[in-house]
Design a protein around this nucleic acid. Structure first.
Length: 772
DNA sequence: CAGTGAGCGAGCTTCCGCTTGACTT
């Protein structure tokens, strides 16, 4: 055993560092935090100055034993956890649990994994910084207090099992606020006018500086333009330059992978993890854009070789640090800059390519451009056309990489403009006025939500992806596509001297993989905003972070900080527990035309429902809202329709046939069998006839019979069926796959029982919807 | 896997931030 034990957080890092340090050093990993607050309510003793009760996490017990053993044998233990608040706390927990002493312990830090940085850190050890540790304790305890005090309020006032927290609740608020903005948005139409001209035979497109509110105005403009002349009144050329984007942080990597590769944030992190473990990239959870000197040098060499020295421009992106950034690591970059690509799966290859290009481009020269603006007048009118052109004089970094953007606006490509001189007359080809509608602000993607959270300083690189999953798993937010609706728009066109018009159709409001708040998400959000303004404020995290920083500087006692916060917060919680009304998102829509009772919608035990009959009515009827219906927008008519189902169609061989809409869409039910109505068919549960339903049922029975391989005499609820993934045993509601090596036909009762038992022993698979 | 929705009360849920496995479909 070697004399020195070095402990880092990540095992991949441990492997790399071991290679740099030689045989006198053993490097081990803590796999992140090793201790945390105990589970239940006894984890913080508030009366004793918020005394925390830490326990070793269940899955870390063996690891801690191993580390204790190694520490005992070593002469010196080097705590080399990350150089940030959490890293300092991990070192402290290690110090405490491994029974280390000041004499045999050194705390070292390095923010890049290069040999020189690590050797340098060994020469400059320090002690564990207890002030920084205290800042982390305050952070940890505050989060527990907020989460575990708020959540039970929701269980009581809204629904059991709900959750709230400093980070997740604000994330939901961002989504809900945007949805309300969209609901309140009124689209306005205006005619956008584009002129197509020719200058010395070359085409020029120009946009009018005015949009017309009405078709009449647009038509008048075109009619008056018919006889008008068009002359250039000014041409201006200005030099411009563009600079490359900074190297990737976790947040910007997630955004670019979403825009350019269509990855979810979870997928980006999973793929990045494999690249990291394979040694292809540096650490993927970082808030820093820094590159090591070594990386800068190598990038410069690569650029010189590939493109020439005029493309090199060494730079460090220190300017705009994200709020609350702690910069414990480098930016995400290729480990070896010279590797233009790496072997591996398609997604890994594509993500690496993105990282390589972004990193290299960040060290390339600015692009130099010439922007030209030409103004073209209309002799008969005061409005003018503007033509914009762009010439790239020197492409610089654009040769390699251009950052994507989230705007869905109609940016037109800017090309080179033909030579034009002032007073030159233009030939007019045509002028087109197109009706355009203003667009509501876009819904968030996972990645654009992360961007927003990062700007607010909420959450950390390691939690962006899990937070996005949490708010979806809790049912507050769902990721969906929005199909869009067709909309007519008018087009007026002046060609030669005649103005023609037509109506075209466009699909409006198409959105893919966007985040929508659910009804329960909105009700919970509104409740929290109403009663816990402080926590729900977008600046809450920034405010407490400022206090954590003061604690870290040794200027504020962490227990005092918690006391100051908790006094008011606790009062707020008890007051809400006792006095706030239950929140159900109830909305009265009106009266039922025949029954005279009120119809309302609200959150029920299993989700949003419509209800006939108010609180005073003895008899009530209930119906679930359909998946695309929302409490806030459903109309009285739509609610009344919900009660038309389930529809009894009639009887077939003495058994009823019913049509309805269930969790998986519209269906017909007969004799315990469910037949789904295909989405793109003409079958509709409101109108389907008994005859058609029977036809579908018969087809289903036939298909089932075909899939049936065997029924056991011993118990006819146990059958062997042919399914999508091959043959399987169906025992009641349980499905058991048959191993591919076995002949389904030959399985007897005894073997079937064996397979079922084996299946029962296996741990239940994690289902996405259920809590883990 | 498709039918529920009162109120009672058992016993449960819940936070954020560090890390990687070992599980199937």
């Amino acid at each position: 055993m070697s004399k020195n034990l070095v402990i880092v957080e990540s095992p991949a890092k441990a492997k790399t560092i071991e290679g740099y340090l030689g045989k006198d050093f053993t490097v081990k990993s803590s796999y992140g935090h090793i201790r945390d607050l105990a589970k239940g309510n006894g984890s913080i003793d508030i009366d004793k100055g918020f005394e925390p009760n830490y326990i070793i996490s269940e899955d870390k017990k063996q690891l801690v034993k191993d580390l204790q053993k190694a520490a005992k044998k070593a002469e010196v233990v080097w705590l080399a956890t990350d150089e940030d608040r959490e890293g300092e706390a991990i070192s402290w927990h290690l110090y405490e649990t491994l029974n280390l002493t000041e004499e045999n312990t050194r705390r070292i830090v390095f923010s890049e994994i290069t040999k020189s940085a690590i050797l340098k850190s060994i020469e400059h050890p320090r002690k564990v910084d207890i002030d920084l540790v205290n800042a982390q304790q305050a952070r940890r305890i505050l989060d527990r207090l907020v989460g575990f005090d708020l959540s039970p309020v929701l269980w009581k006032k809204i629904k059991p099992g709900l959750s709230a927290g400093r980070v997740q609740s604000v994330a939901v608020r961002i989504i809900v606020d945007r949805e309300r903005e969209i609901m309140a948005f009124n689209s306005e139409a205006a005619f956008r006018v584009v002129g197509e001209f020719k200058a010395s035979g070359l085409p020029v497109k120009a946009v009018l500086n005015k949009r017309f509110k009405s078709e009449e105005e647009a038509r008048l403009f075109l009619e008056e333009s018919a006889q008008a002349t068009h002359a250039v009144t000014s041409v201006e050329t200005k030099p411009a330059s563009r600079k490359p984007a900074a190297p990737f942080t976790t947040s910007t990597l997630q955004q670019e992978a979403s825009r350019k590769l269509g990855f979810s944030v979870l997928k980006t992190m999973r793929v990045a993890q494999t690249l990291y473990e394979a040694g292809h990239i540096t650490y993927m959870r970082t808030d820093s854009t820094n590159l090591s000197d070594l990386a800068l040098e190598h990038a410069e060499n690569v650029i010189g070789e590939l493109y020439g020295t005029q493309y090199q421009e060494r730079r460090q992106y220190t300017g705009k640090k994200a709020k609350g950034a702690q910069e414990a690591h480098e930016a995400i970059r290729p480990s070896v800059m010279a590797n233009k690509d790496v072997p591996g799966e398609r997604d890994a290859v594509r993500l690496y390519d993105l990282i390589w290009k972004r990193t290299v481009a960040s060290q390339m020269a600015n692009a130099k451009l010439q922007n030209t603006t030409a103004i073209i007048n209309v002799s008969a009118r005061p409005e003018v056309f503007t033509a914009k052109g762009q010439v790239i004089e020197f492409d610089g970094f654009l040769k390699l990489y251009l950052e994507g953007n989230d705007d869905e606006g109609e940016e037109q490509d800017k090309d080179r403009l033909p030579a034009m001189a002032v007073d030159q007359l233009m030939d007019r080809d045509r002028i087109v006025a197109t009706e355009r509608f203003s667009k509501h602000p876009p819904r968030y993607t996972e990645a654009s939500l992360v961007k927003n959270l990062e700007e607010l300083g909420i959450g950390r690189p390691s939690t962006y992806a899990p937070t996005i999953s949490t708010v979806q798993n809790r049912g507050y937010v769902e990721k969906k596509d929005h199909d869009g609706t067709p909309r007519d728009y008018r087009v007026l066109e002046l060609e030669k001297t005649t103005v023609s018009d037509r109506t075209d159709t466009e699909n409006t409001g198409v959105e893919r993989s966007k985040l929508f708040p659910t009804d329960i998400g909105m009700v919970v959000n509104d409740f929290l905003v109403k009663h816990f303004e402080q926590i729900m404020d977008f600046n809450f995290t920034a405010d407490v972070e400022a206090k954590f920083d003061i604690i870290a500087q040794g200027q504020l006692d962490w227990r005092q900080m918690l006391k100051d916060f908790y006094q008011g917060f606790k009062l707020n919680v008890t007051d809400t527990q006792e006095n706030a009304e239950r929140a159900s998102g109830e909305r009265v829509l009106g009266d039922h035309p025949e029954k005279g009772k009120t119809i309302l919608v609200r959150i029920g035990r299993y989700g949003p429902i419509a209800q006939i009959g108010g609180a005073d009515d003895e008899e009530k009827e209930f119906a679930s809202l359909l998946p695309d219906q929302k409490l806030e927008t459903i109309t009285l008519e739509e609610a009344i329709d919900l009660f038309k189902l389930p529809r009894k169609l009639g009887e077939f061989e003495d058994k009823v046939v019913v049509a309805a809409i269930g969790r998986f869409g519209p269906y017909v039910r007969y004799d315990g069998k469910f037949v789904s109505l295909k989405k793109d068919s003409d079958d509709d549960p409101y109108t389907i006839t008994l005859e058609r339903a029977i036809e579908l049922v018969k087809a289903k029975i036939e298909a089932d019979a075909k899939a049936l391989i065997k029924v056991f005499e011993e118990d006819d609820t146990v059958r062997i069926l042919e399914g999508r993934y091959g043959p399987y045993i169906k025992a009641g509601k349980k499905n058991v796959t048959i191993p591919k090596t076995e002949d389904a036909q030959a399985i007897d009762w005894a073997r079937a029982q064996e397979l079922i038992e084996e299946h029962a022993k296996k741990p239940p698979r994690a289902r996405g919807r259920k809590k883990s």
